[in-house]
Amino acid sequence: MDTQPGPRIGKIVSSNSHIDYVCQVYGPREYDPLPAPDDYAFGSFVAIQADDGRAPAGRLVGVIYNTLLVNPDYGNLGPRLSPRQDLTVFSPDYLSETATLVGVMALGWIDAAGQVSQGAPALAATINAPVRRLSDKEVCDFHRGADGRLRLHYLPLLMAQSDPLIAPLLLTIVDRLRDLFPDQRQRLAVMRNNLAWKQVVRPAG
C-alpha cells in the first residue's frame, strides 16, 4: 500500500454541478513530472485542493468517472503550412489547445484537521484548483469512519446520477476497496453481487 501523497494530475477548469467537476490533465511543459495515464485512470480517487484562504486548507475528495479528449484540429482537413513537429517551435499555443479532460465526481470532504465527511461537500472547488491522485492510505482513511469501520456514505449520491458510466464506476470502486480492506471482503461481496445483479444481469435479460 503506497503511503506517499499521489502525483498531481491537473487542475479544475470547469464544473457541471456542485459535485461534478472537469479537470484538465496537465500537458507538456505545464507541470513536471507529467502525470502518467495510470494516475488519472477511470475510478481513481483524487483530491481537489480547496483554496479557502486558510492554511492548511481542506480538500475535496472525488473520483474520476469520465475522460474526454479535446482536439480542435479534428475534422480540419485543410492544408497545414508547417509540419507538426515544427509547431512546437513556431506555434506552441496551438498545440496546447489539445487537452485531456477528466470528469471528477466529488464524494466528500477532508477538512484542514483531517476530519472526513462523505457525501455532498459543503464547499465547492475553485477554478485552477490543483487535483492530485490519492494514495492508497488516503483512500483507506477517507473510507474509514471515526469508529474504524468501512463506510460508503457517498454511494447513494453516485447511484442517483444518470450517467451510464456510473454503473461500472461503482463496481470499480467496490473492487478497489476489496483489495484495500481485506477484512471487509464479505460485506463488499454482498454489495458487489447486488450491484452486479442490478447492472449486469438484469439489464441483459
Binding site: V200, A204, G205
Partner: peptide, 22 residues
C-alpha cells in the same frame, strides 16, 4: 435469472451471468 438466460437447456444461466461479468 432472466428467462432469456435459460434459452438453451445445455447452458446454465449462471454461465451466461459469468460471461457478462456476474
Amino acid at each position: 435469472y432472466p428467462d432469456a438466460f435459460m434459452a438453451d437447456p445445455g447452458v446454465p444461466p449462471a454461465e451466461i451471468g459469468a460471461l457478462l461479468g456476474y
